[in-house]
């Protein structure tokens, strides 16, 4: 009798698991992705319309905070997918062994070749100094250092764009990176903890230029109808930020996670990116880019360290930066 009861209870549990609640896919990402002005809401609606599931975005600070969160939770993480790391972070993420192959093959519209079994890009952008139209416009980092222009940058120890600039300088000047930083020191008004503070200071008139993305003027043009902002093209090339997502190996819904990764490079996801995340989509759809993106500068040369290279040179580059700016 008792055995019978237990097996009935067991059957009920199995049945409720199979027929009851809709499956949940939890995606950890950064804050601005989930905000109501970010891509999150539109993408959630589009994916839920086709998956018969509940897609939950959970925002955790910025990209670096996101990785720290995953590391903190370890194998017990509730995330099925982590979306929002960049190539400066993927090496550390991969080393945890928490991520599984994504299994997606897609023709990506990236300015560089991309090959990564675990991490799949969903958007990308070029770092650039952004200023007001009609201002002085040096054409390289060295030329910028020679001017009296005032710039605001982010701290590479607490923000992903700050780390991007560190890599940009290293990729362009190699052994001379320390000297470039020393030359740039008198241009730097201040170093902020994150992108928001730097961009805020720039808009307040505290600096002529701010480290941001070539796509930043598109925001002012499209959302504010203000054509007064430009990104400065540097002929020595611009460092890339490629934002990627990966499947957590311990997920309980692997099929759903794989579906999401395929969805991520489809038009329904990608067409939302340009005017919500203000980055270039990893796959340009049949409609092309939104009006206004054609006015943006497109650098002739793209710079990017591979994830292992970036991880290997980070400490040295950070020490050079620190030494040069601490004088």
């Amino acid at each position: 009798m008792r055995n019978h009861l237990i097996s009935v209870a067991g059957l009920c549990l199995v049945a409720s698991g199979a027929l009851g609640e809709t499956p949940v896919l939890t995606v950890y990402t950064y804050d601005s992705f989930v905000s109501e002005w970010g891509p999150g809401p539109a993408i959630e609606a589009a994916f839920e319309a086709q998956c018969g599931c509940d897609l939950r975005f959970v925002g955790h600070g910025d990209g670096a905070a996101l990785l720290a969160r995953v590391l903190l939770e370890g194998a017990r993480t509730e995330a099925d997918i982590v979306l929002g790391l960049d190539t400066n972070l993927t090496d550390a993420a991969r080393a945890t062994g928490l991520f599984a192959p994504h299994g997606v093959t897609a023709a990506l519209d990236l300015p560089i070749a991309w090959e990564d079994a675990e991490f799949l890009p969903y958007d990308w952008g070029w770092f650039a100094f952004v200023g007001r139209a009609g201002g002085e416009a040096p054409a390289s980092l060295a030329a910028l250092a020679a001017t009296d222009l005032k710039i605001v940058i982010q701290d590479p120890r607490s923000s992903t764009p700050g780390l991007g600039l560190l890599m940009w300088v290293k990729a362009t000047y190699g052994q001379g990176a320390g000297a470039l930083w020393a030359a740039l020191a008198d241009n730097i008004v201040t170093v902020t903890p994150g992108w928001s503070e730097a961009y805020g200071l720039f808009l307040e008139g505290e600096a002529d230029l701010v480290l941001s993305y070539t796509t930043s003027p598109a925001y002012h043009l499209i959302a504010e109808e203000d054509a007064g902002y430009v990104a400065l093209p540097f002929d020595e090339g611009h460092y890339l930020q490629v934002e990627v997502a990966g499947i957590v190996a311990g997920t309980e819904v692997p099929d759903l996670a794989a579906d999401f990764m395929a969805f991520m490079v489809s038009d329904a996801f990608q067409s939302v990116i340009p005017t919500t995340n203000w980055m270039y989509p990893a796959v340009v759809g049949p409609e092309g880019l939104p009006a206004g993106f054609d006015t943006l500068v497109t650098p002739a040369q793209s710079l990017l360290f591979s994830a292992p290279e970036a991880a290997a040179i980070r400490d040295e580059a950070l020490a050079e930066w620190r030494a040069a700016l601490s004088q």
């Binding site: 780390l163 170093v191 903890p193 503070e197 601490s326």
Partner: peptide, 24 residues
């Protein structure tokens, strides 16, 4: 960090932030 003008103005709390967030 915001008003210090650069890495000269690093405080212990910022170093903690860096250790937690970037270096884990």
């Amino acid at each position: 960090l915001t008003l210090g003008g650069g890495p000269r103005a690093t405080t212990v709390e910022l170093a903690i932030y860096q250790a937690l967030r970037f270096d884990f």
